[in-house]
Design a protein around this nucleic acid. Structure first.
Lengths: 402, 402
DNA sequence: TTTTGTTAGTCTAGTGGCTAAACAAAGTTT
DNA sequence: AAACTTTGTTTAGCCACTAGACTAACAAAA
């Protein structure tokens, strides 16, 4: 909502904006007194008092006992009521479905995971309903109840939340948002898995203090979520961050996308597995090789496998270098399954970046691995839903004033 | 200025925002009546009348004769007073200095170009002062006079307008902004040349109707300017868009930046010249080969040279493909000197993109060449200055109300 | 203990910009 | 000429903000 956009400005907008400012201050600096909020935000004491009363009425905050005096009357401390409602975050992968119930601060209250293989859409849908039903049923009582459902999907999601393509799930043109809205009568947000992960890290993980974050979701393939100016950047149609298919080797090997020399051919989990197969490294279990098998081998000190990881780290660095040159971010966060192998990736990755990235790009730049590990995406999805709820809560409820 | 940022909201902000809305409406839809503005913007008629009076006082708009009646009183048409002030835009290159004087709609009133070779900073500074002085002196009289100076520089500019590095000019840590401010006592804006070009095309050129534009400035090197959500995206420190040094060939040839396989080694003017030299193509003039010589040869139908251009177009396509996957833009605009060779670049470039870009990225995507040709950057620089002036004009002038 | 000074939070009056609706002005249509 | 339309101004009222007075509640000094 920028000045200059098509929205007109009036008293409601002013109040909404200020209320949001006050709430954010309380969330991020709780416990805090009305007086401190007024001073730090720059609003008049009276204004803050009035807005705080609104927030108290909404039960979004509560008063705790008096705080310490600094030579005068003791302040009444305000705290964010993180249990005022609960949000559901879903992360669906190729062979798993992870659901979390979180409070409004993203603390996980309940988690529920099912794994599967080669299920049809109908079967997955059933699992999804089960998960959501179960989480809903076991949510503690709260003033606002379940405030919404967010979902991260490994595929292409357009700006309306429609899933255009999820190749690994074999989904196409699926409006899951509508399905869930009809069933649950709640606000539903469907997002790409990397976007959800990026937002999760921004809100609750490694990116809390940055405004410009690039989240690299390195799993079977590679997807990227962009946080620019503190907000998710989705591009014109919602398809930004498809960097797994960025060319890093002109006329290189052919990718399943039809293109050649794509990044994810060099630096993804699939790339590792393919390379291992080529080198005739076999799984200790005898079954099909999995990432965990390679990690076990590396843990045992297998030099060939360690070299594989190091090579992948180097290639990750190449792509991240391109990202740095594109976006000049404050922070690059590597997440998803490959992040679990950080131990063997870090050195070659950081070497590549520090040797190649332009010097001025390296100031104020942090490269790190996910803090939320397997929960990035589910938590991010939940965070989208929480953000939506809080935004709506800031708006006037004229209909209730009767 | 987003809701949720650290700015408090009050009446002034409301008025400023609405005034800006009204002015933009008049700029983009002039001539237009007060009534039409009110209806389209969604403000009350009275409010619009009051804001329009303010704008008339500021001489930013003016009333023309009555328009056509549609069955009632004839409307008074409002027009943007594009001659209310003039802005100076400067584009400095390796061997030229282009200055334009524009009105507030970006129409060029006067242009002034000098070319040079291997001048010291002091000598260039002298040329710069001369150009600005001359443009200032010949500006027509207007209510607001010269409202500011914008400048596009081929180098790294940080968020404070300090030039950290302009390799081709051999400038380093130069605070030209301060120099110009001291000399002219005007608002000065220094930006990277690609950023300026991007903004120029967005405001006055091929990108007028898009909100997500990537401008590829392909000259001696390659720089990229990003317009995301309708605004210039500068990254954390102002260094976004350094995509000339994006790796498109892992372990490829070494670039002057120290990295390997950079895009600009394949698709820039320099890349063309180097390739021509390798193929022992000689300039018809006998002197050092220049882009214009290659264009002349291609025009004569030289198949080797045409093949060179086509190869460069293909490589341009590779990088643009990466850009599309990153940003999901509505529009990619290719500008700077290479744009003049569009004739021989277009086919291979678009072939590469249409064969390789993911299908969903190609919807609603336009790839085109600069509309402003050599003026993109100078006009963009001027546009920065105009935007700044209009923003400041929207603010309250309490001191004048006495 | 009393006094003084300080800080927290509420209350009141005043301000500015908005909206709604009445009104005046200037057309067209019948 | 009368009736209707549309434009633009004016007026009254509303709402959220600010400044500053006020009450409340504390610490420190006398």
């Amino acid at each position: 909502m920028n000045i200059g956009e098509n929205k007109t400005w009036n008293h409601h907008v002013v109040k909404e904006g200020n209320k949001s400012l006050v709430l954010k201050k309380i969330i991020n600096h709780s416990p805090i007194s009305r007086a401190a909020v007024a001073q730090e935000v720059g609003l008049n004491k009276g204004t803050v008092s009035s807005l705080v009363n609104d927030l108290l009425d909404d039960q979004l905050i509560y008063e705790s006992g008096p705080g310490k005096s600094s030579g005068g009357r003791r302040p009444v401390m305000l705290l964010f009521n993180e249990k005022a409602g609960y949000s559901i975050g879903i992360d669906i992968g190729v062979n798993y479905l992870l659901g979390v119930l979180t409070d409004l601060n993203g603390n996980i209250c309940i988690e529920k995971e099912v794994t599967f293989k080669n299920l049809s859409y109908e079967e997955i849908e059933k699992q999804l309903f089960n998960t959501i039903d179960s989480l809903t049923d076991s949510a503690p009582p709260s003033p606002h109840g379940i405030i919404g459902i967010g979902m991260g999907v490994p595929g292409i999601v357009d700006n309306n939340g429609e899933i255009l393509l999820a190749p690994n799930l074999k989904w196409k043109n699926l409006n899951l948002k509508l399905v869930l809205e009809n069933r649950y009568q709640l606000p539903i947000i469907i997002e790409n898995e990397a976007n959800a992960g990026a937002y999760g890290e921004k809100r609750f993980g490694a990116g809390k203090d940055s405004e410009h974050i690039i989240y690299v979701s390195a799993g079977i393939g590679i997807g990227v979520g962009l946080i620019l100016n503190g907000a998710l950047y989705k591009g014109s149609n919602g398809f930004s961050g498809e960097l797994g298919h960025m060319t890093i080797q002109v006329n290189g090997p052919t990718c399943r996308c039809g293109n050649k020399g794509c990044w994810e051919l060099f630096a993804s989990e699939q790339a590792l597995l393919t390379a291992a197969e080529k080198m005739k490294i076999v799984s200790p279990s005898g079954k099909e090789m999995e990432l965990s098998d390679l990690m076990a081998l590396a843990e045992q000190g297998d030099p060939k496998v360690i070299a594989l990881f190091e090579q992948a780290g180097d290639y990750l660095g190449v792509g991240i270098n391109n990202i740095i040159n594109s976006f000049n971010p404050q922070q690059v966060i590597i997440g998803n399954r490959m992040a679990s192998s950080s131990k063997w990736l870090t050195k070659t990755l950081t070497d590549r970046v520090s040797n190649q990235a332009l010097w001025f790009q390296q100031n104020d730049l942090t490269i790190c691995f996910s803090e939320l590990s397997t929960f990035s995406s589910a938590l991010g999805a939940s965070a989208f839903s929480i953000e939506n709820f809080l935004n709506v809560s800031m708006q006037q409820k004229t209909s209730l004033k009767a």
